[in-house]
Structure formats: structure tokens, C-alpha cells
Design a protein around this nucleic acid. Structure first.
Lengths: 319, 319
DNA sequence: TTGTATGCGTTATCAA
DNA sequence: TTGATAACGCATACAA
């Protein structure tokens, strides 16, 4: 396994000169350059990138923390990040956490140990303060509103989005509105709950905790939602579903059980996934690809910014 | 940023000793060990992993090449790989290719440059010979039958699976059978086409090239499939669909167009995704998680094996 | 335009 | 049980 020292010997130049031609640096004569190039060719040389990393203190590697990569929301986000990474000559290290804090800490550790230059945390369970402690080792970017903090972020104003959606349903005549979320904890869910509470206060509506259905992530959870609702004395007449995937599952389940949509049950999904279009589901479009792109750029850029992305209600047939 | 040299000085020992306690090596007195541990604590020390990589010539990093991470098939495969990676203390570097050869070569390059120890190629477009040239730099594992070659693989016998599925439909009375695939090229698709041809020969059935529908990957492609079939004089009465995702899209589209399933159109999906269960779609279960696990283990293991995984027909309501 | 010398932070070898 | 020293392979400040 030849190295630049060998190349230098072969080409009759110094290692510096070799390094120069390898990195396209100026100040090297055609003659010597060709000698080096020739040596590279005959020796079948290639860099040991780890030596470069050590020497430079950088790896061109970005960590991406997400709970599951097989959920359309995160898959789409990842796609946006990946696209931008490619353009900027970065590679992605995937850290799937299943929301286990231990794994998030591992990602932070990688930053500390210089294995990755920066870190995108798509969703977290660990403390914000823990994250802030690691900012000294590289930039960290989040997907939630952390204005005033020392890290960057790209996010959607979940409070506003949720409140607006609730009002939209209210003005369509719905007084009993429930919602489905992926997990109860988490900053975004917290904001949604806040919006939900304040919406009910604003319109003096009775607050039903049983209208909040947790752990709705995948298509097949649609069954669960409907079964749970069927048990209620007074079931909601409308549902905000924070994933089109789940919304689609609910629609399918309603069809099976002959529950008419939107008459007996109105549904608003989230994300505007292709499945929503195909199944004619009213949804709130979240620009996930753009979000991913932004996250990446913030991560490489380094200076601290907090960008709010706007969403769009797509009116279709389920409300 | 303290290093082991600093630690050695602080603890009054040699760097070797420091390295020994850092790596839990034997032959270090309690006394010195504690001194080092103390130094580590007060200095807030942590390893520079890149130096370790350079020194060891290994990175505990595995590359994963896949065309798109937002497709359920690959997402599931990735999940299986990730789970096993976690257990073996490996990190994953994701290389999304969109089937661009250039990016696959980049992954191979990473292996050459020692950035990753080994590589899993979930689907490829580059030559097998190109891959074989890189086997000298680390193990490479593929998802297709390459028995007799110098790399490892875990795969499903697509020829047999397809042939069996076609016969199943035939014995259910179908003589006009079409199929939908993700892409025409690729080893797996080639085997499927072979099975399709030979099935038609075996039963002396007319071969309709227009029954083969390409570029079916996502849910929304279901629309496309039905529209394309509607244009045909003699549409097929059954469809093999190499992704439950697409199969579900087709089912939804058929509902919209009042095409009765399975009477007017029978459908067999692939993968046994949750959506297939929920929508009662007959499908061929492919053990993707197990496949991912196997791929990973083969990659770390190093010795060359070729493992065929068996599939299972799940009979439900679409045939 | 070129080369020398040193640093990057570990691990591994070998002698003590 | 310990430590000095040599890798590991590249980048770069500085001198020439």
C-alpha cells in the first residue's frame, strides 16, 4: 500500500510536491507534476482518508440523528439532507435512535471525538442542555423552535399550524375534534397540545383528553385509532392526524367499517405525502425536502440561525 | 484539547500506560491506573477517533449503498442492517445513489480509501467486475444471487419466486398475467423476466410485452399502472406487483374506478408490508429485516458466503 | 518553485 | 509492569 513518501521517492520529488499535485495546489512545474502523476499511475496509489482526517481535524462527515428511517416523514427529511450533502461533498452517518437517549448521546460523542464535523438532530429525546454542552465540538442543528438558544434550527411553528387547523375545522362546523400524534413527549407535541388546549379555551369547548391518541406513526395504526374512537360515548367528528400515512390508514379503516368521510368523520393529515394526494386526503403540506436542505446548510455553515418554514393547507376530500 | 501525551504528563506515566488504561489493557498497576483516570477526569479528555482509525487501519464504519432510502423496501432493509450494526458497534454511512453509477463508484472509493471497513450494496447499477476489483480493499456484500463469484450475498431467488407466483395465478385460472417492476435493468429484474418468459413457454401462452409495466416504485404509481392497463385491448386479469406499496396504490385506484378485485383484476404484492395486511392484499413475504441482518453479518465477517432466503406466500383477498 | 521538518493523536513493538 | 520509540499517512509552516 504505497503512500506519498513512496510516490515522492519514485518521482524523485519531495512529499510536499506530491501532496501539492494530489490536492491541485499551485506552484509545481509541469515536469514534476507529470512525474508524480506517472508515479501515482504505476503504483496504483490512493489516499488514506483517515490520515487526511487526522491531519486536517475534519472528516466531511455529517451525522444525522433520527428515531426511525422507515417512516415517510423522516425518510423524506433524510432525502432532502442527502441531496444537499451530495452537492457539498459530504457523507452522511446515520444514527437511528428509536428514541433511545443512549444512542443520541452516542451521536454527540461522535462529534466530540471528531468522527463527524456536525450533527443534524431530526428528533430528540435528550435534554437541550446536553446538546448545548456539545456545541463546542461542532455545529448541531435541530428541527424545533429553539430561538434564543445557542444552536441552529429549521422548524415549523407547530403551535400555529395546529391552532389554524383546529380553527379551520371549527369553522367547518366541528366542535368535537381529536388528534393523533406519534409520541406525547417531544417539543413539537408539546406545542400541539398547547394549541389544542388554548383552542378549546378560546371557543369554550369541553376538553376531552380521550380525544388525543398517542403512538400513531404508521399506516396500520389507522385501525387502532378507529377502534379506540369506536369505544367512546361521544366520538369526535374530526381528527387532526400528524402523518398522512396514519390518515390514510384511518381512511381505509373507515371504508371497511362504512364510516362515511367526511360526513361522519373529517380528517386532516400532515405532510402532503403522495398517498394523501392519491387518496384525496385534505392535508397540511410540510416542505420536508426544503427542511432537509436547510438543516444541512445550517450544519455546514456554522453560524447560528433559526428558520421557520411555512406550511400550506391542501384542501381535498376528507373535510 | 488534551491528548494522551498531556495525560501522560499529568499522571506522571508514559503514553503507553495511558493508552493501556484507555483500552482496558492488562498490566497496569492500580496506582498508575487511578492516576491516569484522575487525569482523564480533570482534563475532560476524549479520544480523537481519527487518530485511532489511522493507527488501526479500521474505522468501524460500514457503507450502505441504496438507490433511495424513502422506499419501504430499502427502508426496511436498512432497518435490519442498522439494528445489527448497533449490536456490533458499527456505524453506518449512507450512500444514496438514485441508481447513478457515479455514486456507487464513490462508495467503492470510500472502501479503497479506508473510510469504511466494508460495504453493503443493496442494489446496483455498476458492473459486477468493478465491484470485484474492490474486494481487495474490504468485504462487499450484495443482495443478489452471485454464487460462484468472489463476493458474499444474501438474496431471494427471484426466478423461482416469480415462477411460483405465476403458476399460482395460473392455477387460479389466470391466463393473462402482467407484472410491475421498479426498474427493467438489474439482476433481479432480469431473473423475473426470464421466469416470465419461461412460464409463458411452459404453458404455451401468448407473450405480451405490454403486460410488463416499468418504473413502479411508489404508492402513487398505482394510478399509472391502471391507466396504462386501461389503454390495452386485452388487459391482463392478474398482476404481480413487486412492491406492496404499488399494489396498494393499484387497489385504491381500482376502487375509485370501480374495478372489482379480485374478480376483474387479481393482484399479488411483494414484501408483506403492513399496508398489505391492512388492505388485505395477497402478497409474497420477503424477510427484509433478516436479510439486512444477514448482510451486515456477512460484511463484518469477511469470509465469502451466499445465502438464499426463502419467501412465503400470504394468501389474502386480492387473488 | 521546491523541500525540510514537524504536527495530527493514537496504537504497536520491543526492550527493560 | 512500564516506557521509549516507531509506525500510521498526510498536510503545512517555514526556509531556501
Amino acid at each position: 500500500m504505497t503512500n506519498i513518501k513512496d510516490l515522492a521517492k519514485m518521482a524523485g520529488v519531495s512529499v510536499t510536491t506530491v501532496s501539492r499535485v494530489l490536492n491541485n495546489h499551485p506552484y509545481v512545474s509541469e515536469e514534476k507534476k507529470n512525474a508524480v502523476l506517472e508515479a501515482i499511475k504505476v503504483s496504483n496509489y490512493f489516499k488514506n482518508i483517515n490520515a487526511v482526517h487526522l491531519s486536517k481535524g475534519k472528516t466531511q462527515l455529517m451525522g444525522v440523528v433520527l428515531p426511525f428511517s422507515d417512516h415517510p416523514y423522516f425518510a423524506q427529511l433524510l432525502k432532502g439532507i442527502a441531496k444537499q450533502a451530495l452537492e457539498n461533498n459530504y457523507k452522511l452517518v446515520l444514527i437511528q435512535t428509536d428514541y433511545m437517549e443512549r444512542r443520541e448521546l452516542e451521536a454527540l460523542q461522535m462529534l466530540k471525538q471528531k468522527q463527524i464535523d456536525s450533527l443534524i438532530i431530526c428528533s430528540r429525546t435528550c435534554d437541550l442542555s446536553t446538546i448545548e454542552e456539545h456545541l463546542q465540538f461542532g455545529s448541531i442543528v435541530l428541527c424545533e423552535n429553539i430561538k434564543g438558544k445557542k444552536a441552529s434550527s429549521t422548524f415549523v411553528n407547530q403551535y400555529k399550524v395546529f391552532f389554524d387547523a383546529l380553527e379551520y375545522l371549527y369553522h367547518k362546523g366541528h366542535k368535537k375534534i381529536g388528534y393523533c400524534i406519534g409520541r406525547k413527549s417531544g417539543a413539537n407535541s408539546h406545542n400541539r397540545e398547547l394549541a389544542y388546549r388554548e383552542f378549546h379555551e378560546k371557543y369554550s369547548l369541553p376538553y376531552h383528553p380521550e380525544y388525543i391518541i398517542d403512538k400513531c406513526l404508521y399506516f396500520e395504526d389507522g385501525d387502532k385509532v378507529i377502534n379506540q374512537i369506536n369505544k367512546l360515548d361521544k366520538p369526535p367528528s374530526a381528527l387532526l392526524v400528524t402523518s398522512d400515512q396514519v390518515a390514510a390508514g384511518i381512511v381505509i379503516c373507515c371504508q371497511k367499517q362504512h364510516i362515511s368521510i367526511p360526513d361522519e368523520m373529517a380528517i386532516i393529515g400532515f405532510d402532503n405525502e403522495p398517498i394523501a394526494k392519491m387518496m384525496n386526503i385534505t392535508t397540511i403540506e410540510i416542505p420536508l425536502l426544503e427542511m432537509g436542505k436547510n438543516l444541512f446548510l445550517q450544519a455546514v455553515n456554522g453560524d447560528i440561525t433559526n428558520k421557520e418554514l411555512s406550511v400550506k393547507l391542501i384542501e381535498r376530500g376528507t373535510v
